[in-house]
Amino acid sequence: MTISLAPVCDARAPIARANPVAKLTAAVAVSTTALIASDWLTPLLLLAALLAVVPFSGIRIGALARRLRWLWSAALIVVVVNAVFAAEQTGRILIALGPLEISTGALLDATAIGLRVLVAATAGVLGFATTDPTDLADALTQQLRAPARFTLGALAALRLLPLMGAEWRQITSARRARGLEGGWNPARRVRLFVSTMFALLVGAIRRAGRLAAAMDARGFDSEIPRTYAREQRMYAADWAVIAGALLVCATAVAVSAAYGVFTAF
């Protein structure tokens, strides 16, 4: 298993081409609505809208399914925990195993929260799996006026991710060569983990220093306002993405309020 930031989508799809800040705003709007609403209908409507967008995202189905697999298991855990540990078990009792009881009321509430997880996660996948980190950094500095030294510094560090993933593996095999191995002993596993982490962090800080020197040598710290080789702009389509997202949120809330099921927090 390797870590990589390789794009998982077709770069020409409409969503993939949208301005990252537009996507970010849309994802924030949808996730926040799902977090505020605590009924079951609002997140269900939002989820339906998100799924309708998938074909325009250019995400390959295989890649999407792999990410969604994690998502479903996370949602499932949330449902189970909320149902089992519910403050009050209302409605009909479904399961009774000694102290363990699950009622229909609790299960319904838990499912609503599970849906909330699904919405937030799907919005994240759609917004970010389709975004190139360089474009994100450019858009954050150019549209949101985020400080360039921080966004570009973060972007430069991000480039080191696959290198550090490989380094972790090398440190692990080097430790086996020295006679250190976790085996089945949990205490030893944790100790070995900590020492591997230490070696990785020392190397990481050293690398950070070298990268900073290389960047400063190319004028990164000169206090002249910098120009941008790649321009990020908000086109009409990008405003449409934001407007669409807001519309979907408003509609979802309105519909569930019309059915009388909407509740907040």
């Binding site: 510094g153 430069a156 991000l158 080191l160 550090m164 380094e167 596993r189 983990f193 990481a204």
Partner: peptide, 30 residues
């Protein structure tokens, strides 16, 4: 913030995403 401060924080964040990823394998056993 000097450049080295920014980079150190950013590289630490990256290093920890590797650490968390590796932890999942240790954690799976525990």
């Amino acid at each position: 913030w000097r450049t080295v401060d920014i980079l150190t924080c950013a590289v630490l964040a990256v290093a920890f995403s590797v650490v968390f990823w590796a932890w999942n394998f240790v954690w799976a056993a525990l």
